[in-house]
């Protein structure tokens, strides 16, 4: 993917994070963590060249997703 496009996506997601930070509640918290996951995926795939759909992609993204769900769960308890 084009590096400039990845960079703009990351800046856009950072803007989304900033906007969501002002919204209270568990749904907004889930959205904040989902945005963090999208940023992480953009960095892993776009900058670190981890091939999307490969076994290694899943080896990083699946545990990361589970961990973010755990953090959300601990937050809303």
């Amino acid at each position: 993917m084009d590096l400039t496009r990845i960079w703009l996506i990351l800046l856009g997601l950072t803007g989304a994070t900033t906007a969501l930070a002002f919204v209270p509640g568990p749904v907004a918290a889930a959205a904040l963590l989902a945005v963090a996951l999208f940023k992480a995926r953009a960095i892993l795939g776009g900058f670190l060249h981890l091939e999307r759909g490969s076994g290694w992609w899943a080896a990083f993204v699946v545990p990361l997703t589970i961990w973010l769900v755990l953090i959300w769960g601990l937050h809303v308890i």
């Binding site: 994070t17 918290a29 904040l32 945005v35 963090a36 940023k39 992480a40 960095i43 670190l48 953090i71």
Partner: peptide, 23 residues
Amino acid sequence: GAAFWHMVDLVWVLLLPPVYLLG
């Protein structure tokens, strides 16, 4: 070197919501 730098970047985006935003 770039991979190390992206790792630093990656850690920060994961650190941001729990430390600064999830009140």
